[in-house]
Design a protein around this nucleic acid. Structure first.
Lengths: 243, 243
DNA sequence: AAGTGGTCTAGACCACGTT
DNA sequence: ACGTGGTCTAGACCACTTT
């Protein structure tokens, strides 16, 4: 592994362990470079990671300040794993595939996955919950190249993303997300055990491979209050926008 | 301005203008450093910006590939300006302050703004919309230090953030966001002109200054379908997580 | 084998904050 | 005045992809 990443990890641990407290200053770059026995540039790279994560604040002319405890922040992989999230909360994830079928791509599918008329997609509908209570319904559309692998995924697979990476060499690199709300329809109500018209959080996403090819798009609907989706942004690396 | 930022901007323009098309490869670092007359490190810094934005994909051993057209992505400032978003959509933003008052901090206020019992907060309730139709209700709580300035903000101020920066030297640097859904209450229904129980998207945020001090927290409620909130994430810089 | 990006070094000068 | 981070240079070696 890269040295700068190890150093970042070591600093994260130091902050988590209270060696550096919130509001306190980190030693200067030059001092850290002596401590770790690396060039200043390597230290900068390590500190850059922590600044991006919102753990440190960096201002020209003044030492870096600890502004937050490192969160156990999902990696991309972790974010996409509902099971891991549930276990981390001390709950048992439950889930089942409601339906899975090959269909002709709709106009929406074609636009999101950059397909042409007549292309096929693989559509999977899953209900997920914790401790037996449904929390969300997930409606995913895989492009054909991904679908041929997705249809082999076992129903009880803990992480779809990890499975696709290991078994098919398909890696998710980037995603676009949109949030809105809607009222539960008849099908939603039945699957999520809420009354018709109950407010649901909708989360639409398009996932891309490293080379920018759309791999899947999905609309997830969450029971209100069941779980929240969180985002951090900063002036440096902005990710949130109206659409 | 920094040279690397100018170079990033120049590359963004080149991609937007079709000089480099989606799927095509960018010239190598060494070639670009000759073209721009800077060291390779400066080029790397410029390209890093574009990779973070999801415009370029970068793989060791292979040239960087254009995966997307640069989006007009809100800066932090722009994100927080409803008015700018509305104008960019060719619509006229409307809005009014429904109420504004000093209150004793509730437990929720104290937790979000790191206050102690008895501290005061300034609570402002605004309705915003476009072309006369209400779209959202915004309930903001400013910590006292910000509140003394916030209460002087004119009702028709186009950007609260810009006003606080210019008039009071208060700068927002980072924010945490949470999304969920809820049913419209009696007050929401009246302000947003929807029926009681209508699904609303809720967006809670805590905004921090550069040194990590919480400045305000807010809960915004959006009419379903009116506008969506969008987020991008990547394996490199992940920002989305369950909460 | 050649080319590419990823990492790292060891400096330099400047803009900004603090003292 | 001094120390700090921000920017930039000019190299080096390595891991990986492509030819």
């Amino acid at each position: 592994m890269a040295r700068y990443h190890d150093i970042a990890e070591s600093l994260r641990a130091a902050i988590a362990d209270g060696v550096y407290r919130r509001g306190a200053q980190l030693p200067g770059e030059r001092e850290l470079s002596l401590q770790y026995g690396v060039a200043a540039g390597t230290i900068r790279q390590a500190l850059g990671e922590l600044v991006n994560e919102g753990v440190l604040a960096s201002r020209q002319g003044s030492r870096r300040v600890i502004i937050d405890t490192p969160k156990k922040r999902g990696t991309f992989e972790e974010f996409r794993s509902f099971a891991q999230w549930a276990w981390s909360k001390g709950k048992t994830p439950t889930g089942r595939v409601v339906s899975a079928q090959w269909k002709t791509a709709s106009e929406e599918d074609r636009e999101n996955l950059r397909l042409v008329s007549g292309d096929l997609i693989y559509r999977v509908q899953r209900v997920r919950g914790v401790d037996g209570s449904p929390i969300m319904v997930e409606r995913t559309r895989y492009s054909a190249a991904v679908g041929v692998h997705a249809e082999k995924i076992p129903d009880d697979c803990p992480s779809v993303t990890a499975w696709l990476a290991d078994e098919a060499g398909i890696n998710f690199a980037r995603a676009e997300h949109q949030f809105s709300a809607c009222a539960a329809g008849v099908e939603d109500a039945a699957l999520l055990q809420v009354r018709r018209g109950a407010p649901l959080l909708t989360h639409r996403r398009i996932s891309y491979s490293r080379d920018g090819t759309p791999l899947e798009w999905a609309e997830d609907r969450y029971v209100a209050g069941g779980l929240k989706l969180a985002v951090d942004n900063s002036a440096a690396a902005n990710v949130l926008r109206w659409a």
